[in-house]
Design a protein around this nucleic acid. Sequence first.
DNA 1: GGGATGACCGGCT
DNA 2: GAGCCGGCCATCC
Length: 110
Amino acid sequence: MTKIISDTYQRIYEIVRMIPEGRVSTYGLIAKSIGEKFSARVVGYALNNAFLEEDIPAHRVVNRNGLLTGKHHFNPSSLMQQLLENEGVEIKDDKVINFKKIVWDPNESH
DNA sequence: GGGATGACCGGCT
DNA sequence: GAGCCGGCCATCC
């Protein structure tokens, strides 16, 4: 069955796909990139459906604290950390060590 | 249509 | 520096 995705989700998916390898981004940054009218909550909600899509690196998206808040939604939950470490991102206690160094801002990258 | 939920953020104490 | 509270928008029941 083809599931129709809201246009808002499409916007979010577009940004997440632009995240380069070995980098991470935050929900707020993505929300701002789409439009300041959007809230980070919507991004998280969209990521929940995005994680169903294989083309969307949802594991590169973390919260502003650099904490892997969405890892519980992965299967297994440690998969998120595994993928990030596989790309060269160091994780400790479910949080990115050099998060501030590898954080990717879609607005600045523009 | 109303109330509640959610992978959140920013500001204040 | 860490913890608490309110606000934000879209989706679900």
